Amino acid sequence: MPDGSLIDRFLEMMAAERGASRNTLAAYRRDLEQAAELIHGSLGNAQADDLRKLMADYQSLAASSAARKLSALRQFFAFLLDEGDRTDNPALDIARPATRRPLPRILTHDHVETLFAQASEEAAGETPPANAVRMLLLLELLYGSGLRASELVSLPRRAVTGGREFLIIRGKGDKERLVPLSERAREAVDRWLPLLADGSPWLFPSGKAHLSRVRLFQLLRELAARAGIDPAAISPHVLRHAFATHLLEGGADLRALQLMLGHADIATTEIYTHVDSRRLVELVNKRHPLARIDDVDLATSSS
């Protein structure tokens, strides 16, 4: 069967059975069609040696890009194996390019408190500027709910009506998830809604649309500068990382954090587990079964 037909069948399976998004399907198609062009012969009949030569052609790419292309090949051949079109998966014999996911920049608790103190001060009083109240709410939602910048700026006005304790977020891959809305954030919402112009469908309108991600980035850095924090250390993404890191430090469950952040893969969430080593030692000392046995033995011997 021609490679094009095999790729089409594979993508149909990915869409129907795994719910792959349009962007994911497009990326798989590009990677597989490119591989079919580079391999002399049929991609569907390729052997491990063919794939090693192909990966050698990808050496000039970033390791993460080459790894993504290999992942597409592995899943493609796994599909052909399941369908009975092959008796092996030659891509499994290919070493995965070494990738190292960089740790996100960490924002300290003191920095977060300083940012909130500045935003709260600017939004204080009986008739604070509307922009100051908006900034406080943006900050509460970024740090208090861990939203992505794109998710935050595009929030519909109806998302926070009715005293809800959760937001329904449509994130990557057009997938919905529930995100908790803290009491502080709900208080900021109650202050912001009366200041919103009638008729806009957005929670953060700007002109004929909603606030842009670029403008959100600028507003955060301007706030940081006024608070005496290096603006280069602040971004919406950094605040999302701070939300995740500080929750884990407080004892949050990794699986619960995965759901709140909207990560499809738990491995993505695990980059936030750069917890202070002293806390790990404390955790082992308190929770390890042998530690409890030692406590029992000590109590028994002393009695």
Rank of each mutant, 00 (worst) to 15 (best):
P97T: 01
P97E: 14
A98P: 04
A98N: 13
A98R: 12
T99K: 08
T99R: 11
T99Q: 14
R100N: 06
R100A: 10
R100G: 10
R100F: 12
R100I: 05
R101G: 00
P102I: 01
P102G: 15
P102W: 01
P102H: 05
L103W: 00
L103I: 06
R105A: 07
R105L: 04
L107A: 01
T108I: 05
T108E: 06
H109Y: 13
D110I: 07
D110T: 14
D110E: 14
H111M: 11
H111Q: 14
H111G: 10
V112K: 05
E113S: 05
E113P: 12
L115T: 05
F116A: 05
A117C: 07
A117W: 08
A117T: 13
Q118M: 08
A119H: 06
A119L: 08
S120Q: 07
E121A: 15
E121R: 15
E121L: 12
E121V: 04
A123D: 02
A123G: 12
G125E: 10
G125H: 03
G125M: 09
E126A: 15
E126I: 12
T127V: 15
P129V: 03
A130T: 04
A130Q: 06
A130C: 12
N131F: 10
N131A: 13
A132M: 14
A132L: 07
A132D: 13
A132W: 07
R134K: 12
M135N: 00
M135R: 06
L136Q: 08
L136K: 11
L137F: 12
L138Y: 07
L138C: 02
L139R: 08
L139C: 05
E140C: 08
E140R: 00
E140Q: 11
L141T: 05
L141N: 00
L141V: 02
L141R: 04
L141Q: 00
